[in-house]
Amino acid sequence: MSSVEAAKSSAWQQGARDALPLLGGYIPVAISFGLIAVQSGFSALETVLISTLIYAGASQFLFIAMVASGAPLWLVLVMTLLINARHLVYGPNIAPYLSNSRWWPLLMHGLTDQIFALAHTRLPQLAEKDRMSWYISAALIAWGSWIVGTAVGAIAGAEITSRWPLLGEVMPFALPALFLVLLAPRFTSVQWTLTMLITIVAALVLKLMGMTNSAIPLAALCGVSLFYLVQAKLKAEGKAHG
């Protein structure tokens, strides 16, 4: 194998390795989605297509719930897009690390919350030539697990959840554990530590208050505001001392 092929293969492998922890979070949730969608009257094929094409967890649950309850179709569309509006900031944040390949915009179909979090950490560490291989590998593992999990849930979800209830309870902890590992290197200064801690606490409290869908953007805005406040305070102190 040439060195170029070796580097390519390792970028693919690293992408797959990095995405593996996602399976613990994706598969149980996808199984639940498959099960709930079938129980709401969708066929297994329709359920799998929803996961394949929309591919956005929270909004998929909302989609089937609103359709099943007979909500107006325009409202379903608006609510789905509103929930997914947080994705607006993901592409621009990884743009500096992407080449000008025309494939990148198409590959954004795989840019979920978790893939964004992974890519934002990993892409800057990779050589430019390895980034697309890494991204495709990680995104395909995540997308594939979401689709397979949905299919399993639609076909045998009820049996699985009754036979191994503990599995569905424990495996989703992979997601907070993964986010924690991605965040840990960012506690580099008082300003960042305060911003991160306040954001985490705000998101936690908002989620506990039942604001599941707005918790992420609201807590992030809270964190950004605090970051600017601390920065202004540090500048003012610097001027006072300087």
């Binding site: 998101a203 936690l204 953007p217 992030a220």
Partner: peptide, 22 residues
């Protein structure tokens, strides 16, 4: 990159972490 955007990315990840902790 505008500063607000570079700050927003890690805070979005922190917010996802906070939500996923529940």
């Amino acid at each position: 990159m505008p500063l607000w955007l570079t700050v927003l990315a890690p805070t979005m990840i922190a917010a996802m972490f906070g939500v996923s902790l529940v």
